[in-house]
Design a protein around this nucleic acid. Structure first.
Lengths: 146, 146
DNA sequence: GCGTAAATGAGATTCATTCTTATTTTTAAA
DNA sequence: TTTAAAAATAAGAATGAATCTCATTTACGC
């Protein structure tokens, strides 16, 4: 089953004109297996656990290549390092509520908000490619324990 | 007139329990005088031009202290360094369209979008403090010259 | 299997930001 | 105005994420 998954990911990489290296496959497999928002260092350490031949530079370079092909998505929570997730379809796009106390990230999607964004772009003759909407504050858990 | 401005800024700083140092006053004066989104290094260089006694560390520390008191606002355009602007009133809040070609930043405000944000927070029992809404893409100028 | 272009590993490098320590300022009170 | 204590500053060292270098290895079309 892991073999089939490897085969499938190899396919995906080739379709995006990326060489199917063991490192890239392992990286995609890792992100496929979690819903967490890993940063590059965490990804590097996770990969090290599973196979010894990975370097930090490769993690960064692979993430860049994969992001360029929209196979992974960069997330900037404003704390100085980028997080990454496996890209979701257009219909699975989401924004984030970020708790400043505990760091928890709540994903949300609001159709009206997306519509407003498009209308703002139109008003300004601006062609959008991506957007980030982050609301910082305090989550319900942290409100209760002051 | 600069003396009066100094006096006024001194007042502002004291009201926020910050010592009114010449560096902080100069920093506020600089941000008051421009609509640009300077980064820390640019602020440092601008201040150096006007008076020789400033250090990078002080610029960073002052910006942190001023941001904490909401006298300046941090802007994260996702390019690896923070920008700063003089804080505007609640009613002057704005979000940003950021051109990926030329780096131009267009400010906008959309009341419905702000309302949607509040409703999302309510749905999630989340108390918002600040938010960032950045739309990346191509501005009208850059569309014309491909 | 072979050759070549592309990817990788290891570590050096860059760049924004933070920290350290000795010195200087601010400010409140004498 | 002088003075003392607390806070802020200057200068440069240190940190940490991300990028770059270059010698070595790997992927993959032939």
């Amino acid at each position: 089953m892991s073999a089939a998954e490897n085969q499938q990911l190899k396919q995906v990489l080739r379709e995006h004109e990326l060489k199917a290296t063991t490192q890239r496959i392992a990286l995609l497999k890792l992100l496929d297996a979690t819903h967490e928002h890993f940063d590059a260092e965490e990804i590097y350490l996770e990969l090290l656990k599973k196979q010894k031949n990975v370097s930090r530079a490769t993690v960064y370079r692979s993430l860049e290549a994969l992001a360029e092909q929209d196979l992974v998505t960069r997330l900037d929570f404003g704390d100085g390092r980028m997080r990454f997730e496996r890209s979701k379809g257009e219909d699975e796009h989401h924004d984030h509520l970020i708790c400043e106390e505990c760091g928890k990230v709540i994903e949300f999607f609001n159709l009206e908000m997306e519509a407003q964004q498009l209308s703002v772009c139109e008003e300004n003759d601006f062609t959008p490619s991506t957007h980030t909407m982050h609301i910082f504050g305090t989550c319900s858990d942290c409100k209760q324990t002051p």
